[in-house]
Nucleic acid binder design. Structure first.
Lengths: 144, 144
DNA sequence: TATTGTTATACTCTATAACTATA
DNA sequence: TATAGTTATAGAGTATAACAATA
């Protein structure tokens, strides 16, 4: 008996993520953004008064890398960094009106993309997929 | 009634792929490789007499990008490029003995990693995950 | 001294455009 | 002219190390 063939699930995951990521990046590009820009704006919106370290960790990048993106976004007039009066080491990141507008535009693009991505899946299947992905993250040692 | 919340599946996919990809890259790094190097060697091995265009398409990168990686691998003495006598425009890519050795080492690392990735999944669950990923690829318009 | 963030620098992967060689 | 591949160049995203500011 020949043993069952196990195509590496990591290969499939990698291929899928690159293909989907590229399509998503194109979509965001048409809305005037990019994936890290979207993740940055989204995370800033969601985690209101977090330190940049926390934001970086939430996005999954290094602090210096976040600084790099924040610089670009600040130069583009999408956000401002203010020192926290309570602890002047930390910065408070806040979206400007232009930043809020960009956020909404990218959010619409993200929602439209996700709708396309879910096409043909029912709610239960998406939940199962989501749980499976979470288990994969657990298997490589996700820290939260 | 509040509508059900739909966390974007793309976000989950992206997060998982980056986390898993980083862990895999580390693993390959310890074996003296990297993800594109592994994909290149693997694809060269699998698609014996394919043109570089075909190899690039199979990996999911541009021809010039593949050239870039092949240059590195050739300089490292892992492969050679020979012109095909039948059609001297195309090149035949072949692993050297050192390349074969590297391939085996990276393959072992890849197999070990995939084993770790599958931990706690049974065969049926992996198959379902794989099919779900394939459907996601289909939803963004995969071309084969 | 420890913590937060920035600057300087560099690396990897990727891409596009122009080019060479073959057909 | 058309095809296969390379070279030149550039850009995006990421990282590490050294530094400045604050506590």
């Amino acid at each position: 008996m020949t043993p069952p063939f196990h195509p590496p699930i990591g290969l499939s995951l990698n291929r899928t993520a690159r293909l989907v990521g590229r399509a998503f990046d194109d979509e965001l590009g048409r809305a005037g953004g990019s994936l890290p820009v979207w993740l940055t704006l989204l995370t800033v919106k969601m985690r209101k008064s977090a330190s940049q370290r926390e934001l970086a960790a939430a996005i999954g990048i290094q602090g210096a890398t976040l600084t790099h993106h924040l610089n670009g976004l600040e130069q583009a007039g999408l956000l401002v960094r203010r020192r926290d009066p309570a602890n002047r080491r930390t910065h408070q990141v806040e979206l400007t009106p232009a930043g809020e507008e960009k956020f909404l535009r990218l959010r619409d693009a993200a929602i439209a993309f996700d709708k396309r991505l879910r096409d043909g899946f029912d709610e239960q299947e998406i939940e199962m997929l989501d749980r499976a992905l979470a288990r994969l993250r657990g298997n490589v040692g996700e820290e939260e």
